[in-house]
Design a protein around this nucleic acid. Structure first.
Lengths: 309, 309
DNA sequence: AGGGCTTACTAAATCGTTCTAGTTGCGAAT
DNA sequence: ATTCGCAACTAGAACGATTTAGTAAGCCCT
């Protein structure tokens, strides 16, 4: 039954069920333009199952001009609950449409990205958290609004607690999201009638972080609360405050973004915004495949109230 | 010059340089079994460059029976310096041999892994940190020894500080590495003439973690130091100690494994073992491609001494 | 002068699918 | 009794590379 190599091909299935390759293909792909008698369909499907036929993705891709693979380029930030749930949603939704997600990690020399593309001719290439930056198709989509709402939630929480002079803490890398977070933060303070938050950078190394926080507080003594770019940055601030013998929220209220385990383990435990990005991932999958993307409501984020703000 | 679709194919190159497809292929692949005149070689290469020819990986893969892609399956643990440097090394080395690394994230239903394989027919499929578990080819290789040495380093550090009753803290998931870490830990205590370390699990949620640590300390009051499976677990312990109003290293010395940023930000700052896994990644790449892997000495790990042990 | 060797190439098969353009046979309408 | 339409199939051409099995010409050797 099986040709030499061990792989069961469509020809094997066709031969085993006494039909041509074409017919076998039509049956197995449910081609709506063909009429195949139920009896034949049954025979083909049986043979496929019995022989353990699994279609050769490469051959299919060559014929179709594109593979059923979607590549997700992640720059650096893969930690955090957001990316994880985003990837889970993306992966699931793609799987539901017979596609597969592969993740490409950042060391993205232009040459090597070229390599990847030519190597697998993916159906789509996504970049984590960039769809809403460039994606004008999503202008009125739920995603951006959803993300904006989550970003606003962070600022609003601080405002609700009576803080009026805010800071916005940034990481020392250049995530493509920084611009957007800042924009939404300013937007939110504006609607609330507050001054725009003062941005400042918190570097990674512990001593440098403490120094930056100290310098910032010295220069802006009226600031009483800080919204962080993410939990990572927030934890740095918490550590800095500890090292400066200051306390949160007393001396400075701190709220993170994108719930991570480390935030929950920090002292004081970090108040943060939890975003379930699974729907975002699903949405991205649908639009990448050119499918209808309606009816996918991103779950609303929520503030996880702990001790730091 | 370019055929309708926009893609430049080998036929285009061949036509442009007045040779057959076969010749063009021989030239561009430096086929050692063929003799092509320098003049022709030059013409072909020129044409390829001018037209911007880039080989169609899918077509090539179909013909060759396997694509130039290596898939790395990562279960869950992608945080941490180890995985990052491992991936960097793997990626670089593969790139040096015209291959490409793609990472597959865990939601690995048996069906979806099947999908991936058939979709791209990768040259190899690796599993993060599993090569040394199954990999008998590496029995005497540098990798396992290197990893063993690093694991031993962690225990030895505690012993050098005079601790004789040790614990070994595990995460509440089932990483394939757990067995190995435990094995090496026991191995090391044996050579040092100490009792084997007592394993215990530290769950993720803060309250549960504190409870687990408290219960463990109550049950084993002679234990003075704990080696953690990784920095993650170590940070949980540090938090637990804080919540129990105990201190490290006074009440319990804590040492982590695989230097992460959060360890450095914990209070007290976490003492840990830093492993540069780049060479491990390179080695994995070489063996996956069936290449000579000699001369790749894994960099020795080192203990990052901070405040927790 | 014929066989053998080397150089410099080419025609065509091949990988496993998908899909277009037919081909058959049969019942119904003209 | 043609013609038409429809159901149920099939032959074979793509897709874009690699590679096997040649071919043709030139040179050397006996």
């Amino acid at each position: 039954m099986v040709s030499g190599t061990g792989r069961v091909t469509l020809s094997d299935v066709a031969a085993a069920s006494g039909v041509s390759r074409a017919t076998a293909s039509f049956v197995l792909n449910d081609d709506p333009n063909q009429t195949i008698s139920p009896a034949t369909q049954e025979r083909v499907r049986r043979a496929a199952r019995d022989l353990g036929y699994v279609p050769h993705g490469i051959a299919r891709a060559l014929r179709e001009g594109t593979s059923r693979i979607v590549v997700l380029n992640v720059g650096s930030g893969l930690e955090g609950n957001y990316s994880r749930s985003y990837i889970r949603g993306l992966d699931d939704e793609l799987a539901a449409h017979d596609h597969v997600l592969l993740v490409r990690h950042g060391h993205t020399t232009p040459h090597s990205i070229q390599q990847v593309l030519s190597a697998i001719v993916p159906r789509a290439v996504l970049r984590l958290a960039e769809a809403y930056l460039a994606g004008h198709e999503l202008d009125e989509g739920d995603w951006k609004d959803g993300f904006a709402a989550n970003a606003a939630m962070q600022i609003r929480y601080l405002a609700d607690r009576g803080h009026t002079r805010l800071a916005f803490a940034l990481p020392d890398n250049d995530s493509p999201l920084i611009e957007m977070r800042l924009f939404f933060a300013r937007e939110t303070t504006r609607t609330l009638g507050l001054l725009p938050p003062r941005p400042f950078v918190v570097p990674g190394p512990r001593a440098a972080g403490a120094e930056a926080v100290q310098a910032f507080l010295a220069a802006h003594s009226t600031v009483t609360a800080v919204a962080a770019f993410d939990d990572d940055v927030a934890v740095r601030i918490l550590t800095a405050l500890h090292d400066l013998r200051l306390s949160a929220p007393g001396d400075l209220a701190v709220i993170g973004f994108d719930d991570t385990e480390y935030g929950s383990l920090a002292t004081p435990a970090l108040t943060t915004v939890h975003i379930d990005a699974e729907a975002h991932g699903r949405l991205a999958a649908r639009t990448a495949l050119g499918l209808d993307a309606t009816g996918l409501a991103p779950a609303p984020g929520r503030v996880i109230v702990r001790d730091s703000a």
